[in-house]
C-alpha cells in the first residue's frame, strides 16, 4: 500500500514538475495577493501585523484551491480517470497518494508565502514550534479536504465555480484555526494556539477517514 501511495504521489509531482504550474504561476499569484492585501489595508502596519495570520491563510486558501483544481484536471483530461481505475491501485492508496502530492505542493507554496508575510507585513515570530506545527496541521487539513472535495467536482463542466463553493465552507474552520494559531505564534494574540493547531489535526483526521471510506464511491463512475 505504501508503495502504491508513493507511486501516485510521485506521478502527480512529476506532472507538476514538468508543467511548473505550482511554482511558476500559483506561487507568484499568491504572493501578489499578499501585496494586494497590503494595498487594501493601506499598508497600515499595525493592522497588517494583527491580520497577518488570517491574510496568510487566505492566500493559502486561494492558491491551494487552484492547486486542487489542477490536481484533478490532470486526472480527468484524456480519460486518465479510467486508466487510473483500471490500474490495480486501491482507492485508499489513490486518495492518500493524491493527498500526499497536494501536501508537498501546498508546502512549497507556503515556503514562499511564509517569508512573504515576515518581510512584507513586518511581523516577528515568538513561537517557531507552534508556527510549524500549525502550518503542518493546516496543510494536512487543506490537502486531505482538497482531495476529497476536488474529486467531487472533478470532470464536471462548471468545476471552476463549484469547487470553491463546496470547499470553502469545509475549509472555513481550518482557516479560522490556522489564523488564530498563527496569531499566537506571531505574538499578536495571547491564546490557545496549540488547541487551534490540534483542531486542524482533528479536521484532517476526520476527513482522512471519510475520504478512505468514500473515495471509492466517488471514483466508480456508473
Amino acid at each position: 500500500m505504501l508503495t502504491e501511495i508513493l507511486l501516485v504521489a510521485r506521478k502527480d509531482l512529476r506532472v507538476e514538475r514538468r508543467a511548473k504550474i505550482a511554482l511558476g504561476q500559483v506561487a507568484p499569484l499568491a504572493l501578489l495577493i499578499l501585496m494586494v492585501f497590503a494595498f487594501a489595508l493601506d499598508a497600515n502596519t499595525s493592522l497588517l501585523e494583527r491580520g497577518a495570520g488570517g491574510l496568510y491563510w487566505l492566500a493559502v486558501l486561494y492558491g491551494g484551491t487552484l492547486l486542487i483544481q489542477r490536481s484533478f484536471d490532470v486526472e480527468t483530461d484524456d480519460g486518465n480517470m479510467d486508466a487510473l481505475r483500471m490500474s490495480a491501485i486501491g482507492m485508499p492508496s489513490l486518495f492518500l497518494g493524491k493527498a500526499l502530492a497536494l501536501f508537498v505542493q501546498i508546502t512549497v507554496l507556503q515556503l514562499i508565502l511564509g517569508p512573504g508575510i515576515l518581510l512584507l507585513y513586518n511581523v516577528g515570530v515568538v513561537d517557531w514550534a507552534l508556527l510549524f506545527a500549525a502550518a503542518i496541521a493546516g496543510t494536512l487539513a487543506f490537502s486531505v479536504c482538497g482531495v476529497l472535495w476536488g474529486v467531487m467536482s472533478a470532470g464536471l463542466r462548471v468545476r471552476a465555480t463549484l469547487l470553491p463553493l463546496l470547499l470553502v465552507p469545509v475549509l472555513a474552520p481550518v482557516l479560522l484555526a490556522g489564523s488564530r494559531a498563527f496569531e499566537t505564534a506571531l505574538g499578536v494574540r495571547a491564546g490557545a494556539g496549540w488547541t487551534w493547531a490540534g483542531l486542524m489535526f482533528v479536521i484532517a483526521a476526520v476527513h482522512t477517514a471519510l475520504g478512505l471510506g468514500a473515495f471509492g464511491f466517488l471514483l466508480e463512475e456508473g
Partner: peptide
C-alpha cells in the same frame, strides 16, 4: 448546487 449540475445522473447522485 452539486445536484443541479449537468452530469451523468449516476455520477452526480453518487457524489
Amino acid at each position: 448546487a452539486l445536484r443541479r449540475l449537468p452530469a451523468e445522473p449516476t455520477v452526480r447522485s453518487r457524489r
